[in-house]
Design a binder for these strands. Structure first.
Length: 892
RNA sequence: GCACGGGUAGCUCAGUGGUAGAGCGGCUGUUUUACACGCAGUUGGUCAGGGGUUCAAAUCCCUUCCCGUGUACCA
């Protein structure tokens, strides 16, 4: 036992324990262990990433689960790692290149060299987030850190690709995809965010070929693609245009006759009922074009500029500039009927934040495997989603599932393991569809290993979507030994924003490639927002830096504070005040232990003599055990933390400790002193263990300071088994416990009454007043003394026949009537007013209670115990009223 | 449009049918030897509005309004 500074300073302590845990191998998972397995795989953060609040929330929860599982005697694997994050990482290095003088692009550098540069960048800067997670205290098995481009992992990705290809689920096809004109790659549907935007709807005159004085009105938001129009479509049922079908109109830009066709897709009621068909630049138009055998004219370059030499005014211009310019031209030609403001949804690239272009392009696609298994597993509860409502979102996505565009025009990532026969390269490049049959025919080669005769083959240039490697994460990170013990994993903790990107795909991959579900429970965290409810983002600058928060409040403070406000709903509004509360709580805990350390050892002789307050706090501790267990079982972390906070701050510190302080003063009865010290030690031992998963560092430090480690062979707290709550009240009957509970509650209630009374008489809290108790509840003699201590009184005299001087302030408490004799300060009027006020409140309660009990249907229909409860309540109020009335009459 | 989540004290949120709660903030007092990152007291609510079920509704049902999220889209 040693002296500690007055305020808790987390920085050094946290670092010390993080080192020590690693040194002792506390986080390491042993696949040969006999203990039951518990496992989580971390949602791998981007290797380029830096820790943000979402990570903190997410990983704190995982850490709590992992640490608690260790305490429960399980063999725990929490497997960490990072994701290569194709686009994000490549963009990062490209940005560096662009900063050089002269600026360079990846094309200047060349593929091989560029990929080398990214690897170098990764080695140098890629570990930041791992260090940050360690600073948060995450108890991952760092020896098993994985990267989605580790050699073994890459082999698994290629194997999976090959298998799916051979099965016919992967094919290459010419299809309309979401094209990112900045990043110059295709994207999956999930990477496109539909964003409402203010644009304009232009109505344009398309002259009839046969009679240039007549025209057809066509509404469009994209006049810059008019040169690519190949038809104008109307609904076949639209009588207005029936006579025009088969005739031609003149395209207003690059004037050429194009046919008027009929297609069901056109809505009669919308716009003018005539739709320009631009198959190269619109998904739906493309389908209309296919249905009607129309040609495709592409007038956009991959980077979103106009490519149309026949229209020199627009050729080479950026697509948005061209939009304005094209309208000017049309207006000059007298062909603009009108323009009006229009709200529509524009698909925006999640990655580069620019509107995507629908673009016809040769890409690789996957027909998802095991869709039915994936759907059934969640539906039937083999995999449990929490909160449960996410299951609906998941099911909805699966029902409408579309083939996944898995190729990306990137260099950083897993290169597509497909090779084309050199002498057929051109022919294959043009092939509208390639699949398993082409491999059988020897035109292409697909495999985890390059072909045996590489000189005859050319590998596909594209890389795979990052998620095509992440979806294998739960098993591709494990060797067979590890899989045997830890797969399927127990819990997955992640954000609902990646339910489609990642969670659902992992489920399918798990069933398809590991033969089993990847995890049993998925806990979806809330999304951390700022106080205005906005998403945390770099551009808004509303995202606090967790490292800064750790510096100021400690990792434990941050974790605890965040858990206090982490609800189970959709989002959590981040308020730094809450983190400050976490720190304050750490300080409270620290000081409570400091107080214990100032007391010296508890003795075994004389035998401890326990009072109601001792039994009561142990009883509450037992309840806390249950509350934490229940909360964790339901993944209600905020409930756990609230219970832990309230027990310690309110029950233990404010009530119990304050009630027993005199037991520790010099000259106190040694038997009572022993009881108090034993109780304090028991509470602290249990409490630190219960709190440890939430605040691992400070609890560990205090565990050591208190010398508890010595009794556990110097083991760190984090691997000390959870003590059983059953030992807490051993040797006591239920009756004794509940009696203690009643007495302690009465004591604390009485203390409150006295404090109220003192405050009302403007007696400062430390004013040593004298109290007289006319007891109604029989108690041991220590109780009045504890009451004196709690309420800041010099002494409480127990005096059954006390006759109070007129005007003595008094209060009715569960212990009995309490009087506050104020020598020379008696103010009869004041006391009368006070009692009247209290009586008013009570009268109201009585009236309400009586009304309720007077209601026959209540008495008849409500359950007996509810009625009984109400009757008890009324009796209590009435008793109190009687006392107050007696006091009142004594005043007159 | 459809689906889901939410609306409770000034703020952040608990509260799944039986006396409306916590923390913060505000105000008042207090430096009492664990803690001023503290202690004590106090203030503050038509539980978004309306209707219904029930002996009893913040809680269950219907409906309207507002906020958020996802998803589908017609130029």
């Amino acid at each position: 036992m040693r002296e500690l500074p007055k305020a808790y300073e987390p920085a050094e302590v946290e670092e010390k324990w993080q080192r020590r845990w690693l040194k002792d191998g506390c986080f390491h998972a042993d696949p040969h262990s006999e203990k039951p397995a518990y496992s989580i795989v971390i949602p791998p953060p981007n290797v380029t990433g830096v820790l943000h609040m979402g990570h903190v929330l997410n990983n704190t929860i995982q850490d709590i689960l992992a640490r608690r599982a260790r305490q429960e005697g399980k063999e725990v694997l929490w497997l960490p790692g990072t994701d290569h994050a194709g686009i994000a990482t490549q963009a990062r290095v490209e940005k560096e290149l662009a900063k050089e003088t002269p600026p360079r692009t990846r094309f200047d550098v060349g593929r091989e060299e560029f990929v080398n540069m990214v690897w170098q960048w990764k080695e140098k800067h890629g570990g930041i987030i791992i260090k940050q997670l360690k600073k948060l205290g995450c108890s991952c098995d760092w020896e098993r850190e994985r990267f989605t481009m580790d050699p073994g992992y890459a082999a698994e990705v290629a194997r999976v690709f090959t298998e799916l290809f051979n099965e016919g689920l992967i094919y290459r096809g010419l299809r309309m995809v979401n094209w990112d004109p900045v990043l110059l790659t295709a994207l999956s549907d999930e990477e496109v965010i539909m964003t409402p935007s203010k644009s304009k709807l232009y109505t344009i005159r398309y002259r009839l070929e046969e009679d240039s004085s007549r025209y057809l009105l066509v509404a469009t938001t994209r006049p810059e693609t008019i040169m690519a129009d190949v038809a104008v479509a109307v609904n076949p049922k639209d009588s207005r245009y029936a006579d025009l079908l088969g005739k031609k109109v003149i395209r207003p830009l690059v004037e050429t006759p194009i046919p008027i066709i009929a297609d069901e897709h056109v809505e009669i009621g919308f716009g003018t009922g005539a739709l320009k068909i631009t198959p190269a630049h619109d998904r739906v138009d493309f389908e209309v074009g296919v249905r009607n055998g129309l040609q495709i004219i592409d007038v956009l370059t991959p980077d979103g500029h106009i490519n149309c030499p026949d229209c020199p005014e627009l050729h080479g211009m950026d697509r948005f500039e061209a939009r304005d310019r094209s309208i000017e031209i049309i207006r000059e030609k007298g062909l603009l009927e009108k323009e009006e403001p229009y709200d529509n949804n524009v698909g925006v690239s999640q990655r580069s934040d620019v509107p995507i272009e629908p673009r016809l392009s040769m890409q690789w696609f996957l027909k998802y495997p095991c869709v039915n298994e994936a759907m059934k597993s969640v539906e039937e509860g083999e995999i449990v989603f929490r909160p449960a409502h996410w299951a609906k979102t998941y099911a909805h996505w699966l029902e409408g599932i579309q083939d996944w565009c898995i190729s990306r025009q990137l260099w950083w990532g897993h290169r597509i393991p497909v090779w084309y026969r050199k002498n057929m390269a051109t022919e294959l490049k043009e092939a509208v569809k390639l699949d398993a049959q082409d491999a059988e025919a020897g035109r292409i080669y697909v495999g985890a290993e390059p072909p045996a005769d590489p000189e005859n083959w050319v590998q596909d240039e594209d890389a795979l979507d990052t998620w095509f490697s992440s979806w294998l994460w739960p098993f591709a990170t494990m060797d067979s030994e590890c899989r045997t013990k830890f797969y399927p994993t127990t819990d997955l903790v992640t954000g609902p924003d990646i339910i489609f990107f990642w969670v659902s795909r992992m489920i399918m991959a798990g069933y398809r490639f590991a033969g089993q579900k990847p995890f049993s429970n998925v806990f979806f965290t809330s999304i951390v927002r700022d106080l205005q409810g906005r998403k945390m983002s770099k551009s808004l600058g509303n995202s606090p830096d967790p490292l800064d928060l750790i510096d100021r409040y400690g990792s434990d403070g941050l974790r605890f504070g965040l858990m206090r406000i982490a609800p189970t709903g959709t989002d959590v509004k981040f308020d730094e005040k809450q983190i400050e509360e976490g720190k304050n709580f750490a300080n409270k805990l620290y000081n409570a232990v400091r107080f214990r350390l100032m007391q010296g050892e508890a003795g075994t002789t004389p035998a401890p003599r326990f009072s109601a307050v001792h039994i009561d706090i142990l009883d509450k501790l037992k309840q806390l055990h249950a509350d934490v267990a229940t909360g964790l079982g339901k993944y209600e972390f905020n409930a756990c933390v609230q219970a832990l906070y309230a027990f310690f701050w309110n029950e233990y510190c404010s009530l119990f400790l304050e009630a027993v302080k005199n037991d520790l003063r010099e000259g106190a009865d040694p038997a009572v002193r022993n009881a108090t010290l034993h109780t304090i030690d028991t509470v602290l031992r249990h409490y630190l263990t219960l709190l440890s998963p939430f605040m691992p560092h400070i609890t560990e430090e205090l565990w050591q300071s208190l010398g508890f480690a010595a009794r556990h062979e110097e083991k760190p707290l984090m691997i000390t088994p959870l003590p059983s709550p059953d030992s807490l009240l051993q040797g006591l009957s239920d009756e004794e416990v509940s009696k203690a509970r009643v007495i302690a509650a009465a004591l604390y209630e009485a203390a409150n009454r006295v404090r109220n009374l003192k405050a009302e008489y403007n007696l400062s809290t430390n004013k040593n007043v004298r109290l007289v108790l006319k007891p109604t509840l029989p108690t041991a003699t220590d109780i009045p003394n504890r009451l004196a201590l709690l309420s800041g009184a010099k002494a409480v005299e127990t005096c059954p026949g006390y006759e109070a001087p007129k005007g003595t302030p008094a209060s009715v408490t569960p212990l009995g009537e309490l009087f506050l004799p104020l020598e020379g300060l008696v103010d009869v009027d004041a006391e009368r007013t006070r009692i009247a006020k209290e009586l008013e409140k009570i009268t109201k309660e009585i009236a309400r209670s009586e009304a309720k009990l007077g209601n026959e249907s209540f008495v008849q229909r409500a359950p007996a115990d509810v009625v009984q409860q109400e009757q008890d309540r009324l009796r209590d109020w009435k008793e109190k009223e009687a006392h107050l009335l007696a006091m009142q009459s004594a005043l007159s």
